[in-house]
Amino acid sequence: MAVQPQTNQTVSTGTEYIVRCKDVVKEYMMGTQVVRALNGVTLDIVRGEYLSIMGPSGSGKSTLFNMIGGLDKPTSGSVFINDVDMAQLDAQELAFLRCRTIGYIFQTFNLIPVMTALENVMLPMIFGGLSTDEAIDRGIELLKLVGLGERLHHKPSELSGGQQQRVAIARALANNPQIILADEPTGNLDLRTGKEIIELLRQLNKEQGVTIISATHDLKMVDVSDRIVWIRDGRIDRVEERAAVEVRVGDVEGTPG
């Protein structure tokens, strides 16, 4: 049940790297203290790959998520999306990028509580200029794709965590983004539901070719990732290709899936 990609994508350059981070440093001021959340991260992310960012709590995963997603600006260094330096974009262009090029998924699902599942999925499309009818059609199609065709008119409070996250995934796909950014998408879900969400993300990655970048603690993610970037204290500790990791995780978890 593949959703047809729309032709509304503005930039679709053929370069190999969809995201490039160069020497990204991010410092936060905590009173008079300077906290260096990212300490020189250089990372190229290949179009179409499933990348997991792993690391202990406080290592800078969410901060990196903010930088790549254009939600915050680096203190120094730069982030390129489709070879465009995000520092060059003004507020409107950033909003456009968030609306059209990137889909966001959060640990806490972040559905708009006053809107139904369908309305949540429709919102980015409405922002993007689709008519209500078109948005309804595509919204229903997307909710079916994530297995929630029966729950179109439910409010977030009437859905389970796993169902809410599915709605969030449908919403992230609304404008047919090139990138899906997820911060701990399984952090608030039980083991089985988490596994289902991971499998859904992997399926979308394969079928729709969307690049998935996910910050996570969840070792279940390792199974599906093309690459795993381990970060520690705001630096990239090591990068592992999937093949190299597979065996080891099997040993650790004792569950080959």
Binding site: I112, L123, F127
Partner: peptide, 16 residues
Amino acid sequence: YKEIGTMKCLGAYDIF
């Protein structure tokens, strides 16, 4: 705050 931040992630301008 979370709802407002989310809307902005979906593309909302300040004026929205």
